[in-house]
């Protein structure tokens, strides 16, 4: 029971952090860059581990942020100096990084606490068994799963960054040219956002794996994009969607005995599909509405 709670709490924090960062990716039309970074982060994690030999949180964060920024920068450089379409250059860079990551994982499978499976799924079901101790392994107090604390730290960083930089992020997301004319350093905020994406991805990695992060980044934020009227509203709606997806997904995975993280992502997708369906039906209904209002009036004038 307590294990289920840890899993739910971790999943909920992962989904919340992803959905909030995802809002900015959707608004700035950089969903594909988010996709790319979440793939490349694998290489960052493996390299950081191989070079430092530790799974320390800050080493992992550093590796992931470094490789995330390199991905964003290289894609942009290839686009400008190599004169290739922007999405093509993203595709070339992230497939290479991900391929290198997978090769390293399979070469050093014995040494790294990672395998090809967990790269894809994450292992949220095993989250409760990898606990950390406050004050040393031997005589410290067990304070809960490592993945939970990792994502909690990152969630706090994301939340504080958004709260502090809300105004700037708003201007940069909605009106990049205005932001530029106001003297706001767009490049800085671009890489700032990429840093948040990389941190969120690496913290979610243990729990949901490289590719399902993309679903959590993009799908709840897209649902919110359909409904919201302001940035604040969009952040709240995305957050709400992500939490519902976690609960529904967890229940489904319990029923079907399927992967928890995949089920959560599928639940998020189904929520989006429902939102679109309701919106389209609503639109059709409203198109018919004036005709109905018109008809009785005509009848009364005739009488």
């Amino acid at each position: 029971m307590i294990n289920d709670l840890w899993i739910l709490a971790t999943a909920s924090l992962v989904a919340a952090a992803c959905s909030m960062v995802g809002v900015f990716l959707i608004l700035r039309r950089q969903a594909l860059l988010g996709d790319a970074i979440s793939h490349s982060v694998l290489l960052g994690i493996v390299l950081a581990y191989l070079l430092s030999g530790s799974r320390d949180l800050f080493v992992m964060l550093f590796g992931a942020v470094a490789i995330g920024l390199v991905t964003a920068w290289l894609s942009d450089t290839l686009h400008r100096f190599g004169r290739i379409q922007a999405d093509a250059s993203i595709g070339i860079i992230f497939t290479l990084f991900f391929a290198l990551g997978v090769i390293l994982v399979s070469l050093f499978a014995g040494q790294i606490d990672l395998d090809q499976e967990c790269v894809l799924y994450g292992e949220i079901a095993f989250v409760p068994f990898d606990t950390i101790y406050l004050g040393g392994m031997e005589n410290g107090v067990e304070i809960g799963p490592r993945a939970f604390w990792t994502i909690l730290v990152v969630f706090a960083i994301v939340l504080i960054s958004i709260l502090l930089a809300f105004q700037r992020l708003q201007t940069v997301s909605f009106h990049p040219s205005l932001a530029a004319s106001l003297g706001i350093n767009i490049l800085f905020w671009h890489y700032f956002l990429m840093t948040l994406v990389s941190m969120t991805t690496v913290a979610s990695f243990d729990a949901v794996g490289a590719i399902l992060v993309v679903a959590l980044l993009v799908i709840p934020a897209s649902s919110a994009y359909l409904l919201a009227k302001s940035l604040k509203g969009m952040l709240w709606i995305a957050f709400a969607y992500s939490q519902v997806a976690v609960v529904v997904g967890y229940a489904v995975s319990y029923q079907l005995d399927s992967s928890i993280s995949a089920s959560i992502a599928v639940a998020a997708g189904i929520l989006l599909a429902l939102t679109i369906a309701i919106q389209l039906l609503n639109k059709r209904y409203r198109q018919k509405q004036p005709a109905k209002q018109f008809a009785p009036e005509q009848a009364s004038s005739n009488a």
């Binding site: 959707i26 039309r29 950089q30 969903a31 594909l32 988010g34 996709d35 999405d87 894809l120 799924y121 590719i211 399902l212 993309v214 679903a215 980044l217 993009v218 799908i219 897209s222 994009y225 359909l226 995975s253 079907l256 399927s258 992967s259 993280s261 995949a262 089920s263 992502a265 599928v266 998020a268 997708g269 989006l272 679109i276 919106q279 389209l280």
Partner: peptide
Amino acid sequence: NTKIKPDAALAITLSFFFALGLM
């Protein structure tokens, strides 16, 4: 048919189908 932009549509489809496959 919706407000969703092409790049987001790509990312949504990709990740949703992949999640479904993994599930």
